[in-house]
Amino acid sequence: PEDLERKVRELQKNGVSPEQIEKILRRDGVDEREVQELVKKVS
Protein backbone atom coordinates (compact mmCIF):
# COMPACT_ATOMS: atom_id res chain seq x y z
CA PRO A 1 0.00 0.00 0.00
CA GLU A 2 0.92 3.60 -0.65
CA ASP A 3 1.15 4.64 3.02
CA LEU A 4 3.44 1.73 3.87
CA GLU A 5 5.78 2.75 1.11
CA ARG A 6 5.79 6.29 2.46
CA LYS A 7 6.54 4.98 5.93
CA VAL A 8 9.44 2.90 4.62
CA ARG A 9 10.89 5.92 2.81
CA GLU A 10 10.56 8.02 5.95
CA LEU A 11 12.36 5.40 8.01
CA GLN A 12 15.11 5.12 5.45
CA LYS A 13 15.48 8.89 5.27
CA ASN A 14 15.94 8.84 9.04
CA GLY A 15 18.84 6.45 8.64
CA VAL A 16 17.05 3.25 9.62
CA SER A 17 18.75 0.20 8.12
CA PRO A 18 16.86 -2.15 5.79
CA GLU A 19 17.14 -4.88 8.44
CA GLN A 20 15.48 -2.64 11.01
CA ILE A 21 12.83 -1.63 8.50
CA GLU A 22 12.07 -5.32 7.92
CA LYS A 23 11.71 -5.91 11.65
CA ILE A 24 9.41 -2.94 12.04
CA LEU A 25 7.20 -4.00 9.14
CA ARG A 26 6.95 -7.56 10.42
CA ARG A 27 6.11 -6.30 13.88
CA ASP A 28 3.33 -4.23 12.31
CA GLY A 29 1.92 -7.42 10.84
CA VAL A 30 2.89 -6.72 7.25
CA ASP A 31 2.90 -9.88 5.19
CA GLU A 32 6.31 -11.31 4.38
CA ARG A 33 6.10 -10.89 0.61
CA GLU A 34 5.07 -7.27 1.07
CA VAL A 35 7.98 -6.73 3.46
CA GLN A 36 10.45 -8.01 0.86
CA GLU A 37 8.93 -5.85 -1.88
CA LEU A 38 9.04 -2.70 0.21
CA VAL A 39 12.59 -3.26 1.40
CA LYS A 40 13.74 -4.00 -2.14
CA LYS A 41 12.25 -0.70 -3.31
CA VAL A 42 14.24 1.37 -0.88
CA SER A 43 17.51 -0.54 -0.70
Score class of each variant (00 low, 15 high):
L38D: 02
I21Q: 00
N14V: 08
K13T: 07
L38W: 02
Q36M: 06
D3N: 12
E34R: 14
E22V: 08
V35P: 01
R27Q: 15
E37G: 05
L38N: 02
P1K: 14
L25E: 02
D28M: 15
G15N: 05
E37L: 03
N14Y: 05
D31A: 09
K7P: 00
V42G: 06
K40I: 06
E37F: 01
R33Y: 08
Q36A: 09
E19R: 09
P1C: 11
E34D: 12
V35C: 05
E10P: 00
R27N: 14
E22H: 03
Q36S: 06
G29I: 02
E2M: 12
P1L: 14
I21Y: 01
K40W: 01
E34C: 14
I21R: 00
K13H: 09
G29C: 10
L25Q: 02
G29L: 04
G29E: 03
E5T: 08
L4G: 01
P1R: 14
K13N: 10
L11Q: 01
R33V: 11
Q12E: 08
L4T: 05
G29S: 03
R33L: 10
L38T: 06
I21F: 01
E2Q: 13
L11K: 00
L38G: 02
V30M: 10
E32R: 05
E37H: 07
E5V: 13
S43N: 11
K23F: 00
E19P: 04
K13G: 07
R33S: 12
D3A: 12
K40H: 10
R9F: 00
Q12N: 08
I24P: 00
I24Y: 00
V30H: 12
Q36N: 09
I24G: 02
E2A: 14
G29W: 02
E2Y: 05
N14Q: 14
D3W: 13
R27W: 04
R9A: 09
E5K: 09
Q12R: 12
I24H: 04
K41H: 10
E2L: 13
Q36C: 10
K13Y: 06
L11A: 02
R6H: 10
V16D: 02
I24M: 07
E22N: 03
V30Q: 04
K7C: 09
K13F: 07
